[in-house]
């Protein structure tokens, strides 16, 4: 009975509804250890993520930026005096203005970025999952050199992502890159990868797929360990083919894990900042920008526009929330609950 940090969790109102003391108490007695187990995490997340997040939602209804966020701007003189002037255009509540400006395209390229983001997310996650599943299935079998294959295939994950991004950028360099050298060697004209939005996006997707497959592979490999081998044994006795075993045992057995990795993989890829930012830099002319990178460039170059950044943040959050609600509903139809 040693382990848990458990200073008994404060009797905060359970997130359900305020109830009569006796019920609250019963609930507390029954569940205190569960709450104790989740409390530390909840505190950290509340302070570091939820406070900024709710503040962000509020900011998206104001016009607050770096220049108008304080009521008075003070200029300190080196000789010791300080002059404070009232800020002539202090920030104010602007209602839905930011959303209107963003959604009507007055500021930024919201719809174009969203389109690119959706394509990017879908293609990346599909490739991650497909390739990761294939490799994990192979690596789950006993065979020679399995440990070596596993390590080699996981290496892309071990290199810091921005280094890999540079490596791929070199490979796709239009003049000096390996990709064009190979194309020329087989008699195909070199491609100006970054002069067209689709080839440009292609380079980023290749990079991200390469980066992300090892994670999927390892996660699924871990998931495959939950499948009791008795099932395979029985299936084998029944004469099921490898494909049948895969379809009827492996895939259903992987459901909890694959549901998690697809859901979170989608969210992460949607917000995957460094790859686009470093590999394509949004080229050509911002056409391969996804929502996060576009929002970052729009709001954080020069005087930072916090309200605009928050507006994009809230829009991204809403898109992903809608996605996860639908995802959850689709899963529930198949009997999965969470």
């Amino acid at each position: 009975m040693t382990t848990v940090t458990a200073d008994p969790a404060p009797p905060s109102t359970p997130p359900g509804r305020s109830a009569r003391p006796s019920r609250l108490r019963r609930s507390w007695e029954k569940h205190w250890y569960a709450w104790a187990m989740v409390l530390p995490v909840v505190i950290v997340l509340a302070v570091l993520i939820f406070y900024p997040l709710f503040r962000g939602i509020w900011l998206s209804f104001t016009n607050l930026n770096e220049a108008n966020q304080v009521a008075e701007i003070c200029t300190k003189s080196i000789t010791g005096s300080e002059v404070c002037k009232e800020n002539p255009n202090k920030w104010e509540f602007v209602g839905l203005d930011n959303y209107l400006r963003v959604l009507t395209g007055e500021v930024g390229e919201f719809w174009q970025w969203t389109g690119v983001t959706l394509i990017w997310t879908f293609v990346c996650v599909a490739c991650h999952f497909g390739l990761g599943l294939g490799l994990a299935t192979m690596l789950n079998r006993p065979m020679r050199l399995r440990g070596l294959y596993r390590v080699l295939l996981v290496l892309p994950w071990a290199v810091p992502a921005f280094v890999s991004a540079f490596a791929w950028k070199f490979i796709f360099n239009e003049r000096f890159g390996l990709a064009n050298a190979v194309l020329s060697a087989v008699g195909i004209d070199p491609v100006s990868w970054f002069a067209d939005r689709w080839t440009s996006l292609f380079t980023a997707i290749v990079t991200n797929v390469w980066l992300g497959v090892p994670f999927m592979m390892v996660a699924l490999l871990g998931g495959m360990q939950t499948i009791p081998s008795e099932l395979y044994e029985a299936a084998e006795i029944d004469g099921a083919s490898a494909w049948q075993r895969f379809r009827n045992i492996t895939l259903p057995g992987l459901r909890p894990v694959s549901m998690t990795v697809i859901l979170l993989g989608t969210i992460w890829t949607f917000n995957m900042f460094p790859i686009i930012f470093l590999v394509t830099e949004g080229q050509p002319a911002g056409q391969s920008e996804i929502l996060v990178t576009g929002a970052f460039r729009a709001a954080f170059e020069g005087i930072r526009n916090y309200s605009l950044a928050s507006t994009y943040g809230v829009l991204i959050l809403s898109i992903l929330l809608v996605f996860s609600v639908f995802y959850r509903r689709a899963l529930r139809k198949q009997g999965e609950v969470w």
């Binding site: 997130p15 359900g16 569940h31 569960a34 993520i49 962000g56 991204i316 959050l317």
Partner: peptide, 25 residues
């Protein structure tokens, strides 16, 4: 326990708001 399902959703939400925007706060 009460709050179990919202908690899982809350975990997801923490991943949805872009880090680039969260850094300053």
């Amino acid at each position: 326990f009460p709050g179990r399902r919202p908690l899982m959703m809350v975990f997801l939400v923490t991943q949805m708001f872009p880090v680039a925007i969260l850094i300053v706060p």
